[in-house]
C-alpha cells in the first residue's frame, strides 16, 4: 500500500485528453492516406490537487471538460498525456487498485438495473466491488440508510422516482467504503427538494472523513457545498480557490443588472456606464441591452446609470442589485454566462 494519509486525494498534472472526431475508414488506412480527422481538446492541460477531507468542486458550463476529467480519474478514460494519482496510486499503472478505493457516481439513474430491487442492485455491485460476503449485508444497510432508502430497499428500481434512483446510485458508490467519492453532476434533473436532500448527503460524506470531488454547472451548488472550487472552461482551469476568495477577486461589493431599452447599438450608453462601474458583460437582444456591472456601491452607481441612459437617449427598464456570485466570477473570467 503506497497510499498514506499525507498524500493528496487527487493529484493530476498536465492532464490532456484529445478526441478524434469523424472516422478513418479501413481503405483510408490501407492506402496510407493522411489522417484528416478533426482533433478536439476536451481537456487541455489541467493541474489539480484535491486535499483529503475536502469537498472540491469543478464548476463550468456543459462541454467544459468536467466529465472527461472525472472519467480519467475513474480509470474509464486513458489520458492523451499527463499523470494522475488517486490516493497516492498511479491511475494508469494500477487502475484496479484505484477502482477498489473509489466511489463514483457518473451517469446517475440510467446506471441501475430497473428490473432488480435496490437491495439486489447493491448485492450485485457489492460482489463486483469485492466486498467480503460477511460484511455485505451491513455495508448495504449502511449505504441505504445513509441515502434514506432503507424502507424502500425491496422495491423494484423501476418504481423509484428520479431522485430516489440518484440516491441509490450514490449508495452504490459508497459500497466499497471509499475514502474518495467522485460525483458527476449529482443533482442534474432533480427537483429542488431532491437536490437539497442529495447535497445534505454529500455534506455528511465529508463529516465521515471522506473526500468528495464533484462537478456541477450550478453555481449555487458549488458555492454552498464546496470547500474549494476550480472554474473550468474549454478544458482548462481558469481559477481555483475557496468560493469566498473567488468572489473577492471581483473588485466590487455589488453586482447591478440593468435592462436598457434603446434604438442604437448601445455603444454610447456602455461608454458612459463604464465611467462609474466595471461592465462585466453586455448583450443586445431585440432592442434591449442587458448589462452586468460590478461596482463598489449600488447606491452611487444606480443614479449615475439613469443619468447615463438619459443622456444617451435610452431608458432603463429594469434594475436588479445582487451580491457577487460565482457566476459573476465566471463571467469576469470568460465574458460568458455559465448556461450559455
Amino acid at each position: 500500500m503506497t497510499a498514506t494519509a499525507a498524500e493528496p486525494a487527487v493529484d493530476a498534472r498536465g492532464l490532456v485528453k484529445v478526441f478524434e472526431r469523424g472516422r478513418r475508414t479501413f481503405w483510408q488506412r490501407l492506402r496510407g492516406e493522411p489522417d484528416r480527422r478533426e482533433r478536439f481538446h476536451a481537456v487541455d492541460g489541467i493541474d489539480l490537487r484535491v486535499e483529503r477531507g475536502e469537498i472540491f468542486g469543478l464548476l463550468g458550463p456543459n462541454g467544459a471538460g468536467k466529465t472527461t476529467t472525472m472519467k480519467m480519474l475513474a480509470t474509464l478514460l486513458i489520458p492523451t498525456s499527463g499523470t494522475i494519482s488517486v490516493l497516492g496510486i498511479d491511475v494508469l499503472a494500477r487502475p484496479r487498485d484505484v477502482r477498489a478505493r473509489l466511489g463514483a457516481m457518473l451517469s446517475g439513474e440510467r446506471s441501475l438495473y430497473w428490473k432488480l430491487t435496490a437491495r439486489e442492485n447493491l448485492e450485485y455491485f457489492a460482489a463486483l466491488y469485492h466486498v467480503p460476503p460477511r460484511q455485505t449485508r451491513a455495508r448495504i444497510d449502511d449505504a441505504l440508510t445513509s441515502v434514506k432508502l432503507l424502507d424502500r430497499a425491496d422495491d423494484y428500481v423501476e418504481r423509484y422516482s428520479t431522485g430516489m434512483r440518484q440516491r441509490l446510485a450514490l449508495a452504490r458508490a459508497l459500497l466499497p467504503d471509499p475514502p474518495l467519492v467522485i460525483l458527476d453532476e449529482p443533482t442534474v434533473g432533480l427537483d429542488p427538494q431532491a437536490a437539497r436532500d442529495l447535497r445534505a448527503r454529500v455534506r455528511e460524506l465529508r463529516s465521515q472523513g471522506r473526500t468528495v470531488l464533484l462537478t456541477t454547472h450550478y453555481m449555487e451548488e458549488a458555492d454552498q457545498l464546496c470547500d474549494r472550487v476550480a472554474i473550468i472552461d474549454h478544458g482548462r482551469i481558469v481559477a481555483l480557490d475557496t468560493p469566498g476568495a473567488l468572489k473577492r477577486t471581483i473588485r466590487a461589493e455589488e453586482v447591478v443588472r440593468l435592462e436598457i431599452g434603446l434604438a442604437d447599438d448601445g455603444a454610447a450608453v456602455l461608454e458612459r456606464l463604464g465611467r462609474s462601474a466595471t461592465v462585466a458583460r453586455s448583450e443586445r437582444h431585440n432592442g434591449t441591452l442587458a448589462v452586468t456591472a460590478h461596482c463598489a456601491s449600488a447606491r452611487d452607481f444606480v443614479p449615475a446609470a439613469f443619468d447615463a441612459a438619459r443622456s444617451a437617449g435610452a431608458t432603463i427598464q429594469h434594475v436588479e442589485v445582487v451580491p457577487v456570485t460565482l457566476e459573476d466570477v465566471f463571467i469576469s473570467l470568460t465574458g460568458r454566462a455559465l448556461r450559455e
Binding site: D97, S111, Y113, H130
Partner: peptide
Amino acid sequence: DAGTLEPSWLTPST
C-alpha cells in the same frame, strides 16, 4: 446501451 456497463467498469472486478 442501457448505461449499466459504466458502473460495472468502475468496480475493481476485472
